[in-house]
Amino acid sequence: MYKSNQDDTVVQIDDVSFRYGSQMVLENISLSIKKGSFLGLVGPNGSGKSTLVKILLGLLKPTHGRVQVFDAPVAKFKSWEKIGYVSQKANSFNAGFPVTVFEVVSMGLYGKVGLLKFLSRKHKKQIFESLERVGMSEYSSRNIGELSGGQQQRVFIARALVSNPDLLILDEPTVGVDTASVQQFYSLLSQLNREKNITLLLVTHDVGVMTKYVSDVACLNKTLHFHGTSQDFENSDLSSLYGHDVQVITHDHGGAR
């Protein structure tokens, strides 16, 4: 069945289940991401969102089911430069690492440049262009650890964008980023989606602001509870349910930090 839609389907997840030991984390997930869409994948903490992303990226193998990325099964997929990935960097990377913003963004090209080859002048230009796109070009020679959480997140977006990906996956990109920057950040994403026609997958537990920017919403909590347009989502009961649930979690987070 999923052969018929090849042209406009970027990701096709078919009946995927995953378990850690005896614990079922994901159960019978089927989900497709259409080219040019902006999908918000929401769910409370521990709902299996990150696990699903890792399966999508080939970092974890599903216990059951299959995943198709750009017309290839994920295990055989080779054109990783087509996918930009931003993980929960704002609170997980080693900020003491002696590396400049330029060097961080250049990493996004390493897979494309290939083994035993060096960055060319053209690549360096691409790095600056990517930094410009996120408004961080004047910081290129700064140490990454000296920047604020929001600025770091922009640098990681620049790294994900530098290889001109068709699909951008962001896993909880706004954790540890202040509210004002979050707004800016989302409008940057929707701009990329509209102007560059980049397909976006945004994983978050923060439903609130997100629904204004995305085109589609999928709700995950071990199983897939909802998948439809953001309009349908806002009209459904789930919106308030998830929204409420999530607010509590967000506040807990704030208190702990």
């Binding site: 990226l57 080939g58 970092l59 080779k78 990783w80 430069e81 996918i83 990935y85 993980s87 960097k89 990377f93 080693n94 690492f97 590396v99 060097e103 961080v104 250049s106 990493m107 996004g108 390493y110 897979g111 440049v113 083994l115 060096f118 960055l119």
Partner: peptide
């Protein structure tokens, strides 16, 4: 470049297709 990427962020390096 591969060693730098792996040192900075091993998971991301894997996603970029580095061996």
């Amino acid at each position: 470049k591969e060693l730098l990427f792996l040192s900075f962020d091993e998971e991301q390096a894997k996603v970029s297709g580095l061996p």
